[in-house]
Amino acid sequence: MRSNPTGRQLRLGRELRRLRESAGLSSTEAAQLIGIKQNQVSNMEAGRIGVSPERLRTLACHYDCADKGLVEALIDLAAERKRGWWEEYREVLPAKLLDLAELERSGHALRTAHTSGIPGLLQTTDHAREVFHQVVPELSPREVDLRTSFRIKRQGVLFVHREPVPYQAVIHEAALHMRFGGRDVARQQLKHLLKLSEHPNVTILVIPFDAGGYPGAGQPIYYVQGAVPQLDTVQLDQSHGIALLDAEAQLNKYRKVLDRLTTLSLIETESRALIHRIIQTS
């Protein structure tokens, strides 16, 4: 039995519980239907034990789940994985950061919106290091190094494994004027954005100052699209750490916020032109 389930294993358990509850069954009733003990159902839903494809299909059948796409996506979610690169950071970085890296690895599309900073997957090493130097309470030099290297390795999801995942970043013009690390670091960061925007899977859109107000209260939003909409996830940065949200109402809300921010943005060519102008005048 797992003592510390990963984010992926916990997510599978939550989805199994949602299916059971939507069918109006208690964990005891579900256990009786498939001939196991109630505590086994509870442990599956808590991510403490695995679920075979056969058992998962049986549960879906008893839960009257006719969504074959969702069932197959859950089976894939339940499959045992090889150790990912992020495992070398286990017990030296917060577990939710590792969960985020694994989530990105299985994501089918990524969307983000930032109004006061550059998205992590688009940061240069120098920019990322300066961001971590500003964390309160102050991080030790070793922690800064670990978080910086972890962030840079996460960027491989855009370019390294399988087919490059589609990635859209909406950045407010205000963030492009921030000088983390000083003028030279800031200029190199902007040039890096222009270079990344040339990749076919990367879309960078800028909200100009004259766009006026915008939704979202300025909070960074990161949306990871799963194999099916039910397995989407929203990641929010909060003062006490990151939060991963997957309730249907939350997903709908942040999809709408991101759509609205996209409509406020300049198109790609105009966004690149604005970034170029800021480089020239910075």
Rank of each mutant, 00 (worst) to 15 (best):
S27Y: 03
Y254V: 05
I204K: 03
E268S: 14
I279P: 02
V228G: 05
K195I: 10
I279D: 03
A101T: 15
P119I: 13
S149L: 13
E248G: 05
A46P: 07
E102L: 15
S265A: 15
H127I: 10
K96S: 11
G24V: 11
D210T: 13
R83V: 13
R57W: 00
P166F: 11
G35Y: 03
G241W: 00
E15T: 11
A247M: 14
R151M: 01
Y63P: 00
E54T: 15
H127P: 02
S282A: 13
H199Y: 15
A247D: 15
H108D: 03
L190K: 02
R142L: 09
R277H: 13
F159G: 03
S116P: 08
V202M: 11
R105V: 08
E268W: 12
F180R: 07
R83G: 13
I204N: 03
Y63L: 00
E270I: 13
L264V: 06
L231M: 13
R14T: 10
Q134G: 03
R83W: 14
H161K: 12
L100G: 04
L146T: 04
N201C: 06
K68D: 14
E15Y: 10
G212N: 07
I75D: 00
G226H: 02
R48Q: 05
G212P: 04
H108F: 09
G117M: 15
I36F: 12
G107V: 03
L59K: 01
L245K: 08
I118V: 15
A243Q: 06
E80F: 12
L244K: 11
V160G: 11
I204V: 10
T233C: 14
R83A: 15
P208K: 10
L74K: 01
R183E: 06
L244N: 06
R187I: 14
R151D: 01
G218D: 04
V185H: 03
L194V: 12
A186L: 01
Q238R: 09
L190G: 02
Q155I: 08
Y223P: 01
S271D: 04
K191P: 01
L98C: 13
M1N: 08
G216W: 04
R111T: 01
P141Y: 00
V41I: 14
T203C: 08
P137L: 00
R129A: 09
T28E: 12
V257G: 00
A78E: 09
Q32F: 07
Q219V: 09
D76G: 07
V144P: 01
S149H: 12
R111A: 04
L205M: 12
H240C: 06
E198P: 08
L103N: 05
K96T: 11
L59M: 02
A101N: 14
E138L: 09
G13H: 02
P208Q: 06
P94T: 12
E270G: 11
Q235H: 15
L12G: 05
C65E: 06
H133N: 13
Y254D: 07
L244G: 04
Q123E: 08
S149K: 11
L77D: 00
L139A: 00
A243I: 07
L121A: 09
E104Q: 05
D64L: 11
D184H: 06
